[in-house]
Design a protein around this nucleic acid. Structure first.
Length: 449
RNA sequence: GGAGAGGUGGCUGAGUGGUCGAAAGCGGCGGUCUCGAAAACCGUUGUACGUGUGAGCGUACCCUGGGUUCGAAUCCCAGCCUCUCCGCCA
């Protein structure tokens, strides 16, 4: 299931905290000016994404905000002038009782207006935080995944002349996957890999990290616990609150993907244009409550609360953004091609697109045992949506400060990749062949069983 | 966990209630000089919001959030973070 679908299931939204540390007047996710000038375009985007942000309410608050600012700032200007005069008089040894008394009144009024402004801005910010990113014009319009478009397929789907066992069965028989033990330890929705199964996961991680770092990505090892405003920065909050684990009530969150800590490394920073593009790759566990998906994919390791994933992140100049998206997809595909696993690439429809994404490709690979396509990678571009939320900028050659584009893509998710290998590389005698490129990473072992 | 010190512009670092968005230096940018470069010298150099067609004008920002005051980088309170020492520990 995509992030988008998971979010739709969540439904009821509660108003989250104010995310003060990132909050800045006027900057939220979309530029308030953009909403002001293109209300209909934004409304259409909200509808196409099956979201329900109230744009008219935002416009009203924005109008009110500017009215108050006009009023309070002229009062402040007057006060600043008077204050300068008072200072002058005091210095000259004169009294300034009248002016001080007068300014006392003015300051009181300013305090009241500031309070009103604070409230309006808090409301505005909350409302803005629920406005999703606008889909790119190339994204197919459609209410759900049925409108997704397959853009290409690679490899041929094998048609074995024997019954391929689902991964949980072959895994159990080979003694490399122990779902029961995982349930004993942690409850439903976990997996334990043993022996060559665990070795296989490690081999895959190393294979992928080696490939990506060879291709110019810098490997990072990041925290799995992050603050609330970090979650806000990449767009998980406020919307996905119910789908994430959290340490107590106001403690840090467990990351649902390495995208979160890696992208937020640049939160609040002004990068130099020479630093761009930034390519990073990291391997972390991903923790997901999977709230709302109870009863789906209950068997095996397809849908679990914790899984391992290699994630790629890019921070790039806006003008290169969509080229970077294509090369990022290609990078994820390269892993599957290296493992000789057949897959297809789909462009997600507007209704299947995640809250923060402008465009997204899913890589789905065929799993012979469960006889269906599994989403193994999601490659997205967020344009400047995340950069705005994080307040991450870069200084361009002309010295102006701009928002970069951010992208990320799985490269890849282990809890989908391992089942695919166990099923697609399964032999009639119940053994599993190791993909050729992986054999060196398996210490020369070419077959399990 | 205990005890101290501290968080100022891209960086270093002054500033302890009043024309302070903030000295100075470094760095950056522009210029003079040069065949070119370095050095030297001169000039310039924050971000956001509001307003205006525009030059501009106004407001806010010295970790964050409150408070005191006619007026806060400067005083008070809370929080976050950093550093040093002690203790504990993978």
């Amino acid at each position: 299931m995509t992030l988008a679908r998971r979010m739709h299931i969540l439904g009821n939204q509660t108003v989250g905290p104010a995310y003060h540390s990132v909050q800045q007047t006027g900057i939220s996710m979309l530029d308030i000016k953009f909403i002001r000038e293109n209300p209909d375009l934004v409304k259409t985007a909200v509808a196409n994404k099956n979201e329900k942000a109230d744009i008219d309410h935002i416009l009203t608050l924005d109008q009110r905000r500017r009215e108050i600012i006009g009023e309070v700032e002229s009062l402040k200007a007057a006060r600043n002038r008077a204050t300068g005069e008072i200072a002058h008089k005091k210095k000259a040894g004169e009294r300034a009782d009248d002016a001080i008394a007068q300014m006392k009144e003015v300051s009181l009024k300013i305090g009241q207006l500031d309070e009103q402004l604070r409230e309006v801005e808090a409301d505005l910010h909350t409302a803005m935080s629920w406005v999703p990113n606008i889909p790119h014009q190339s994204v197919p319009v459609g209410k759900d995944e049925s409108a997704n478009q397959v853009v290409r397929e690679w490899g041929t789907i094998p048609k074995p002349n024997f019954k391929v066992l689902p991964h949980w069965e072959i895994g159990a028989r080979l003694g490399i996957l122990d779902i029961e033990a995982a349930t004993r330890v942690s409850g439903a929705g976990f997996y334990i890999l043993k022996g060559l199964g665990s070795r296989l996961e490690r081999a895959l991680v190393n294979f992928m990290l080696d490939m990506h770092t060879t291709d110019g990505y810098t490997e990072v090892s990041v925290p799995h616990l992050v603050t609330e405003d970090t979650m806000y920065g990449t767009g998980q909050l406020p919307k996905l609150d119910d789908d994430m684990y959290r340490e107590r009530n106001d403690g840090p969150y467990l990351i649902p993907t390495a995208e979160v800590p890696i992208t937020n490394m640049f939160k609040g920073q002004i990068l130099d244009h020479a630093d761009l593009p930034i390519y990073l790759v990291g391997h972390t566990p991903c923790y997901r409550r999977e709230a709302g998906s109870a009863g789906k994919d209950t068997r095996g390791m397809i849908r679990v609360h914790q899984f391992s994933k290699v994630e790629m992140v890019k921070i790039v100049r806006p003008e290169t953004g969509y080229d970077e998206l294509e090369s990022l997809v290609a990078q994820a595909e390269k892993v599957l091609q290296g493992l000789e696993l057949p897959y297809r690439v789909s462009a997600l429809a507007t209704g299947d697109l995640s809250f923060a994404a402008a465009k997204c490709y899913d890589l789905e690979l065929w799993a012979a045992g469960v006889e269906r396509y599994l989403e193994i990678s999601s490659v997205s571009i967020f344009e400047d949506f995340q950069a705005r939320r994080m307040n991450c900028r870069y200084r361009d050659e002309d010295r102006t400060v701009k928002f970069p584009y951010t992208l990320n893509g799985s490269g890849l998710a282990l809890a989908r990749l391992i089942p695919a290998i166990l099923e697609n590389y399964q032999n009639e005698d119940g053994t599993v062949t190791i993909p050729e490129r992986l054999v060196p990473y398996m210490g020369g072992i070419g077959k399990i069983g």
